[in-house]
Amino acid sequence: MTGERERHWRTVYTDKQPNAVSWYQPTPEQSLLALDRFGAEPGQSLIDIGGGASTLVDALLARGWGDVTVLDIAAPALAAAQARLGVASANVAWEVADITEWQPPRRYDVWHDRAVFHFLTTPEQRAAYVRALGEGLAADGLVIIATFALDGPEKCSGLAVERYDADRLAAKLGPGFTLAADWRDEHITPWGARQAFTWCVFSRTD
């Protein structure tokens, strides 16, 4: 299954420019809002799960973050981000990995995931994600996750997704994480379609 997922996303980023995919956003406004709201600071460490070619890493570097890791299953997505950043890419740790099989080498202060979790459609995949989260998040760490809302798309990039509200997402993460805030956002795709997202911030409590 991992091989199929890797081939799918590698093809997506090989066939399309980063700004031609539905999840593209010029500025990661909601992510930065969450970081600011909960006092995340440039001196902390952050990992962007499924960060791919996202511009979040650009914004973090511009803000002075010095310990940023971007993880994605598709090497071409990370290569696009590296090419865009140029020499600044040397200041970022890049991980090509499937989150459901990844073994965190360390712990991070902030775990950020915009739209990976909703692609995990089996209990086994979700359990593997929560395992990685538990191993990779600092004891007092912050979790920022965005998924399609209950009225959001049923598919993305040709793949089925799971849709969530805050209560359902909290139940999937389990008792080790406490919901600190949630809100709704409507993402506008490059071609003008609206996609409803649920954004949640959790604190670690175990």
Rank of each mutant, 00 (worst) to 15 (best):
M1V: 15
E4W: 09
E6A: 12
R7D: 13
H8W: 10
W9G: 14
W9N: 07
V12A: 09
Y13N: 10
T14H: 12
D15C: 03
K16W: 13
N19F: 05
S22D: 08
W23E: 06
Q25E: 06
T27S: 00
E29P: 00
L32Y: 05
R37L: 01
F38E: 00
A40R: 01
A40H: 01
S45P: 03
L46N: 03
I49Q: 02
I49A: 05
G51F: 11
G51Y: 01
A53W: 01
T55F: 09
A59Y: 14
L61F: 07
A62P: 04
A62S: 12
A62Q: 15
W65H: 03
W65I: 05
G66H: 11
G66F: 00
G66Q: 13
D67Y: 00
V68G: 14
V70Q: 07
L71E: 10
I73E: 00
P76N: 11
L78S: 09
A79R: 14
A81V: 08
Q82W: 15
A83V: 15
G86E: 08
V87D: 15
V87R: 15
A88E: 12
S89F: 08
A90F: 03
A90W: 00
N91T: 15
N91E: 15
V92L: 04
V96Q: 06
T100H: 07
E101V: 01
E101H: 09
E101Q: 10
Q103K: 15
P105R: 03
R106Q: 14
R107W: 06
D109I: 05
D113C: 04
R114V: 02
A115G: 11
V116I: 07
F117K: 10
T122H: 08
T122W: 07
P123M: 14
P123I: 08
Q125T: 12
Q125W: 13
Q125A: 15
A127P: 05
A127G: 02
Y129H: 09
R131E: 10
R131P: 02
E135Q: 14
E135P: 10
E135T: 05
G141I: 04
G141V: 04
I144F: 04
I144A: 01
I144D: 00
A146V: 03
A146W: 03
F148G: 03
F148S: 02
D151H: 00
D151M: 02
G152N: 06
E154I: 01
E154K: 03
A160C: 13
V161D: 10
E162F: 15
R163G: 08
Y164V: 11
D165L: 02
A166V: 06
A166I: 10
R168N: 05
L173P: 13
L173I: 05
G176A: 11
G176Q: 06
F177V: 09
T178E: 12
D182G: 06
D185R: 08
H187Y: 03
I188Y: 11
T189M: 10
T189C: 11
A193L: 13
R194M: 09
Q195E: 13
F197R: 11
W199L: 03
V201Y: 00
S203F: 08
T205K: 11
T205R: 12
D206N: 13
